[in-house]
């Protein structure tokens, strides 16, 4: 590009450029054709659903669980991985979405669309219910986020954990929502298309957001809050945005979960469920969406593979987790975050 003769200094620069890895960060496939990939993923999930009759029901069941876990893990990754706010309340947001959307389809929808609605109306109602569930979860995200984001690290983790438990106790004490017995008779609307379509949208949203000048702020907040603030980044606002978007998708995942299992109870959204999602994020590598997706798949499959070991299954599962964390502490799929050497030896 430079028409001038390269000086020896420039030659040196060119040489060390060769040592530095060439690939600019974020210029991967996802960053270059985000919308095309989203469309492809949506079509793929539609095809998957079209042929779902030919899929063994056991496998279909696992696929649905994988899809829901991907949504949960990818959305939590925005909060925990990119923004660095350790939240243990994801199952809480999920339960808010699950109960809200179930309430919409069970109590509100019949009066709106009648007892024997057409398919199109049912679908519209389901989508509406999912969105309402997501939005209510997002509001919960603001309510939890705004006051508690002044806290850091362990303290934030404890507050979000407390939120998750409070939500659980609240649902257990609302008779209309089934109380401790749980809510039964949720209509079976969830299918492979909805689950993987949402997973695709969730992944797209998180990636599109992070791969922008605006979104670099999330990582800046994680890296150094004081410096981020000094560079004109409103750190509180970023944290709340992360919480709201994360909670929104957790709420939708909850809605999908409820309309798949057809019965939800407060126990299903306890502290252990939150931990499960956090483990997926950590194992996938904090702030590495590809890794987190793989970890969500792996950690959903692992308990299934281990079924042959019967009563030792969960012991082995925990043991494998320990081994994985010891051998890959930076995350299973942390190729990119690796520090690249700058200067030739």
């Amino acid at each position: 590009m430079n028409p001038a003769q390269p000086t020896s200094k420039e030659m040196g620069a060119a040489q060390s450029t060769a040592v530095v890895a060439k690939r600019p960060r974020g210029s991967n496939l996802v960053a270059r054709w985000p919308k095309t990939l989203l469309l492809a993923a949506l079509v793929a999930s539609f095809v998957l659903w079209w042929f779902s009759n030919h899929i063994n029901p056991y496998y279909a069941d696992i696929l649905i669980k994988i899809g829901i876990n991907i949504i949960l893990a990818v959305s939590l990754n925005l909060i925990n991985g990119y923004t660095g706010q350790f939240s243990l309340g994801h199952a809480g947001f999920m339960s808010v979405g699950a109960y809200t959307s179930a309430a919409v389809t069970m109590f509100v929808a019949p009066s709106l669309i009648g007892a024997t609605p057409s398919t199109a109306l049912t679908v519209a109602c389901f989508v509406l219910a999912l969105y309402v569930g997501g939005l209510v979860a997002a509001v919960a995200g603001i309510l939890v986020g705004a006051p508690s984001l002044r806290l850091k690290g362990d303290y934030l983790a404890i507050v979000t954990l407390g939120f998750g438990e409070i939500i659980r106790v609240i649902f257990r004490n609302i008779p209309k929502l089934g109380g401790a017995l749980g809510l039964n008779g949720i209509p079976p609307y969830t299918n492979l298309f909805w689950v993987f379509g949402t997973a695709a949208i969730c992944t797209y949203v998180v990636l599109a957001l992070v791969h922008s000048t605006y979104g670099r702020g999330f990582i800046a907040v994680q890296d150094d809050e004081v410096a981020a603030e000094a560079m004109g980044i409103n750190t509180t606002r970023y944290k709340i945005v992360a919480f709201v978007i994360g909670a929104f998708f957790a709420g939708i995942a909850g809605g999908l979960y409820g309309h798949y299992t057809l019965s939800i109870d407060p126990k299903g959204f306890d502290f252990m469920r939150s931990i499960e999602i956090v483990v997926m994020v950590i194992l996938g590598g904090m702030g590495n969406t590809t890794g987190v997706i793989f970890a969500a798949i792996l950690l959903t499959l692992l308990p299934e593979w281990l079924r042959t070991f019967e009563q030792y299954r969960m012991i082995l599962y925990s043991f494998l987790l320990v081994v994985l964390m010891l051998t890959r502490p930076q995350g299973l799929f942390a190729w990119r975050r690796k520090t690249k050497p700058i200067l030739a030896a």
């Binding site: 605006y214 670099r216 890296d223 410096a227 560079m231 004109g232 978007i245 702030g287």
Partner: peptide
């Protein structure tokens, strides 16, 4: 106090936050 995990390019880019027009929706 740089942003250690961000690239050199992204460190400077993050400081453009004050001068960008796009937000969540546009991104």
């Amino acid at each position: 106090r740089l942003f250690p995990s961000l690239s050199v390019y992204d460190n400077v880019r993050a400081a453009f936050r004050l001068h960008i027009k796009h937000g969540v929706v546009q991104a």
